[in-house]
Design a protein around this nucleic acid. Structure first.
Lengths: 352, 352
DNA sequence: GCGCTGTACGTAAGCGCATACATGACCTTG
DNA sequence: CAAGGTCATGTATGCGCTTACGTACAGCGC
């Protein structure tokens, strides 16, 4: 690996000035076809690749968008090599995928970095310093750090809490859970529903619970004050929650609604082990619409949120800001859709 | 958004030189504690974030690793918004995740970019110009383009074909399929096995098929010359393949082995629809060990490959090269593990 | 022939930082 | 108290590009 060639090397070998070399890449039409070909040939021979850093410095834009997301299970990963990982992660993975696609469509690359609590701010700066715009998933960074970065470049927040002054993209958690709960109450005639929530500091989980409450209000049923139990949104937590509710509430509730699909799937497994039939003995629902929800048996009735869209919309907002259209901070709420499947009794269990 | 502050701004406000500001970030111990605090305070007040581009230019290293991966379904995504996406993708997602973690551990960020065939080389340069090292998944880029980039910086190839001169990480496709096939032949006493392969140009799929062949050789069974059918590694392809084999081969084979889990899952669904019982009427196996394989019913017997490790090892190899240890190109073959589950009859179907 | 316009290209000035080297303050030691 | 050494900091240069501006030259009308 000899020292990497630069514009100077290419220019010299091609018998042109460095400006011309640069133009071949940045603005090909400003160069005569013959010259262009010559430069490109030399570049190929030399193995020349423009330096992103130099370009970034000179042009004051990097052509890269960033995404910071929370890393849930760095530690687990060690001892769970063959376990159920790859599922919770699906959420951020889908956001990454959506962002990557949208970014690429707009000619941007994507820099990703999970925020590991210890050194979140240092890392944020690391990322922020290299990108033209930044998306932050599920409050992966503190408000203070946001403040520093937000003055420097466009920032959009995905899911989690709203912060005034920042663009925000979220899904219709409240509406989705409201509709889902209404479905159980109105269409299935259920009255006694239990809600297994996420951590109290999860804005998304709380919004879903408020949707759950609202459906009760609407139907004239007693208002649940708090989720009947909480968990950390994993399958394991769902399993535990299901067992707890099973043992605690007599008679059994008509339905168990979970703050996300992961928990609901865990519950499904626990119920199966206990011999409780779903949906015959009890109805179960999730939230998110992860691919798995469709494939468990019984297939899970859930609310599908457009996770990939989250990333796409993030890119749209960032690009808009980068193009300089000044506008006040925007909140975009993405619509969700109800997926009625077997676990609420809507579809025969055998249906795919 | 006023023009973003630079070292000069910070230096001036803090009453120091820009060298000192730089040192505060790059080499804090070289600065007196009081000075350091002063600088950091000013930096925070000003909203100063070091420019990655400038740093990259000056230090000739970016602190970023890159990953190029093939994007399978850009087009599908449009009309399959709520369909079965999010599964095939899991593979590259897990690699991304593994790389991101490992990179972060080593103090690097990760730049990801799916290679969209049309403009793959342009894009590769885009990425290559911004990173210190590059991983390429499943030959997402052409050999020629590789050549240009490979002279400039460390490159490691993940899965796919080996190219001489490049580090390469792959999983033990051959061994895994051999072991799995052997399991069906020896432990389950099956004789007539069908193999549904991937595209003929998929090195991984072909290696698996060779493992399938080898097991036959070893057992003294007739050597299958070609996969009994092929598909494009999607669930849909698996479904089709299953139906095709079902209709074509009489009597039914004892077992259907698929080049990956996706196809096997598709097959499971098709078989269920046809009323063919697994594993009673026919045995089904997959390859990959995606999370889904554990959750379908019957749970899928498969070969688990350490997808995340792929990314981790990629980082290890890149870092090693970046640290200058000269060494010949390396091939790392990651071990796989057999997951015996219900679909081959090893475990009662109800087991989780 | 002149001046004019447009095109293709060269010249040169940074972009914001890292860092080798220089400087000066302060300490040590004989 | 001078000579040498250490530590904290300043000075100055260059990393490899982009781009505003300048230049040379061809073509044009008069």
């Amino acid at each position: 690996m000899t020292s990497t060639p630069t514009v100077y090397d290419v220019a010299e070998r091609a018998g042109v000035s460095i400006a011309t070399v640069s133009r071949v890449y940045r603005n090909p039409d400003a160069v005569r076809a013959a010259t262009r070909e010559k430069v490109l040939t030399v570049a190929r021979d030399l193995g020349y690749v423009p330096s992103g850093s130099a370009r970034g410095l000179a042009s004051r834009t990097t052509g890269v968008l960033g995404l910071c997301f929370p890393d849930f299970h760095d530690t687990e990963a060690e001892h769970a090599a063959d376990a159920e990982d790859g599922e919770l992660v699906l959420y951020s993975d889908q956001v990454i995928r959506g962002m990557e696609r949208a970014a690429r469509r707009h000619g941007y690359a994507l820099l990703v970095s999970a925020a590991h609590a210890d050194q979140a701010n240092r890392q944020l700066a690391e990322v922020a310093g290299r990108v033209d715009g930044l998306a932050v998933l599920a409050q992966a960074v503190s408000e203070e750090d946001l403040g520093v970065v937000g003055r420097r470049q466009p920032v959009v927040l995905l899911a989690g809490e709203r912060h005034s002054g920042y663009d925000h993209v979220e899904v219709a958690n409240f509406d989705g859970q409201l509709e889902l709960t209404r479905h159980l109450i109105v269409d299935h005639g259920l009255r006694r529903l239990a809600f297994a929530g996420g951590p109290a500091d999860s804005p998304d989980g709380e919004a879903r619970f408020r949707g759950f409450q609202a459906a009760h209000l609407e139907a004239g049923l007693p208002l649940p004050k708090e989720p009947d139990t909480r968990g950390d949104l994993t399958q394991t937590a769902g399993r535990k929650a299901a067992l707890e509710l099973l043992d605690r509430d007599r008679p059994l509730p008509d339905g168990l609604m979970f703050a996300n699909d992961q928990m609901a799937v865990g519950a499904l497994l626990a119920l199966e082990a206990r011999g409780v039939r779903v949906p015959d003995d009890i109805v179960v629902t999730g939230f998110d619409g992860i691919p798995l929800s469709r494939l468990v048996r019984p297939a899970l009735t859930t609310v599908r949120q457009p996770t990939g869209r989250l990333g796409e919309v993030a890119v749209e907002l960032l690009i808009a800001r980068l193009q300089g259209r000044e506008r006040p901070a925007t909140v975009r709420v993405l619509p969700v859709t109800l997926n009625r499947r077997a676990s609420c009794g809507c579809t025969p269990e055998s249906t795919v």
